[in-house]
Design a protein around this nucleic acid. Structure first.
Length: 112
DNA sequence: TGAATGACTCGAT
DNA sequence: GATCGAGCCATTC
């Protein structure tokens, strides 16, 4: 649990996601050089609830644009409501126009 | 120490 | 084209 741990990198990338945009676990994992560690990203999100500053985990969804982690936000509608507040269209726990709002760290950050 | 779990993803059938 | 199963890595019991 060091400050430079895998989780901290995940949090940093997630915090870079602009409002109105979302990213995927796989995209984050791939950006960190662990494309097959997508589950670890989800694990990191699970711990991110008591991480400071808060991590916008609601902007992270699975590859299908499905709010797979909404159940971990306390209320099932919290994640969906936050996304809607940022202008993202969510229907049936799934992000609409997903390719349009998808934010790829590798593409946006240009391989920092 | 060993085994099981998980907010995922990809490949095979 | 849709469904099922295996893999992956870190954390937890």
């Amino acid at each position: 649990m060091n400050d430079n741990s895998f989780y901290e990198k995940v949090y940093e990338v997630v915090r870079l996601v602009p409002a109105g945009r979302v990213t995927t676990y796989g995209a984050i994992a791939k950006y960190l050089g662990a494309a097959r560690s997508s589950r670890l990203v989800g694990w990191a999100m699970n711990v991110s609830h008591h991480v400071q500053p808060p991590v916008p985990a609601h902007r992270v969804v699975n590859r299908l644009g499905l709010l797979s982690g909404k159940a971990h936000f306390g209320h099932s509608s919290t994640m969906e409501d936050r996304l809607k507040t940022e202008g993202i269209v969510v229907l049936n726990d799934q992000i609409q126009h997903f390719p349009n709002v998808f934010w790829d760290p590798e593409k946006e950050l240009k391989f920092i």
